[in-house]
């Protein structure tokens, strides 16, 4: 069997013919394996879903209990046989419940990473490299300009701004799944103990993280009447809310945004961000390269993001690589490349 007979791209997503199922399909299918709960990877309406317990729970929180007709929990590291193919899930370090999926048949092992990161994060399990013949890597930050700095420095930037502008409210845009919780955890780990206020849209997922054993301290939902009284406080909201009427009612807000895209100045400016915080839940360039070396795969398939540069790097390093043009990813999580293009 050749690798592309085991797994290949289709308009609906990565398809595995011998098991007749898809990984992270972008449209409803009979059988789906889901790497993690971000909306572009985890969609509602499939016939059957196999994913980690946390990912299944996150899908329930987001889409309601009926997001699929049947579901099966994948236990990390345990092989599940479907037809002639063996599947196993391994931590990806991206968000709570995120997993890489190893697909093995006929002596070939392909690992689909989903999205992953290598930086430390106490809100989810760390990435575990799995040796394989083909590694499918994401490339959201697949350009050598993307090097995420130490998160402690980014949090220090936020806390020093709070100290310098005690009369202003600091409002931080962060994605509701993963980013918000990690950011809050980092702020707590830096010793900030005051209440952190959150937008209503984030409440459920934060509660889910806490119930999964990720303590985040004193979290309060921002009540409408209360918005004007939040001077000197920290507010976390979805990115779409930072430029909204919602944020405008906060007292003289400093607009912050937590994302790997904040590394590029023109990106941050286009979004009208005043305090860019470079905090990402994806691997940066150095970590992408290190991971490719670590899994030891002789062949790399590169997907969603900046495929060309990473393919070039593989070539320079004598590793066979090709871009895997998969459509439909990148409208949630950090991969919001299109939505940052604002008109004047």
């Amino acid at each position: 069997m050749r690798p592309h007979e085991l797994l290949h791209p289709t308009p609906a997503g990565l398809y595995c013919p011998p098991a007749d199922l898809y990984i992270d399909p972008v449209r409803p299918v009979a059988r789906a394996l889901i790497t993690h709960g971000h909306a572009d990877h985890a969609r509602a309406g499939h016939g059957a879903v196999l994913a980690t317990a946390e990912t299944l729970d996150i899908m329930s929180v987001r889409y309601g209990e009926n997001f699929t007709q049947s579901r099966q929990v994948a236990i990390l590291g345990e092989a599940i046989r479907i037809g002639s193919v063996s599947f196993s899930f391994h931590p990806a370090g991206h968000v709570l419940g995120s997993a890489q999926i190893a697909v093995e048949a006929g002596g070939i092992r392909i690992v689909a990473s989903g999205d992953y990161k290598r930086a430390p994060d106490r809100t989810c399990r760390a990435f575990e490299p799995v040796r394989c013949d083909v590694f499918i890597t994401e490339a959201t930050f697949g350009l050598p300009v993307f090097r995420h700095p130490d998160t402690a420095g980014e949090v220090a930037k936020l806390l020093s701004s709070l100290a310098l502008f005690p009369e202003r409210c600091h409002v931080i845009g962060a994605y509701a799944l993963g980013k918000a919780q990690r950011l809050i955890a980092l702020i707590r780990d830096a010793g900030y103990e005051r209440p952190i206020y959150v937008h209503g849209a984030m409440e459920k997922l934060i509660a889910f993280y806490e119930s999964s054993g990720v303590p985040l301290g004193d979290i309060r939902k921002v009540a409408a009447a209360e918005r004007k009284t939040l001077k000197g406080e920290l507010v976390v909201c979805p990115p779409s809310a930072i430029q909204d009427l919602w944020a405008r009612q906060l007292p003289d807000p400093v607009t912050a945004f937590a994302s790997g895209w904040m590394r590029i100045r023109s990106r941050a400016r286009q979004k009208g961000v005043e305090l860019p915080l470079i905090v990402s839940d994806h691997a940066d360039w150095d970590d992408l390269c290190a991971t490719i070396r670590e899994v030891g795969a002789p062949e790399i398939w590169v997907t969603h993001g900046q495929e060309d540069a990473l393919v070039r790097w593989c070539e320079l390093n004598g590793i066979r690589a090709r871009p895997l043009r998969l459509a439909g990813y990148g409208d949630d999580g950090e991969a919001e490349t299109e939505s940052v293009q604002a008109a004047p």
Partner: peptide, 21 residues
């Protein structure tokens, strides 16, 4: 690598910033 530089510069759009990163 010149190709990696070209891809990066094209994306960032500013020479100093590209080189700094």
């Amino acid at each position: 690598d010149p190709e990696l530089f070209a891809l990066s510069y094209d994306y960032v759009g500013d020479l100093s910033e590209t080189v700094a990163l």
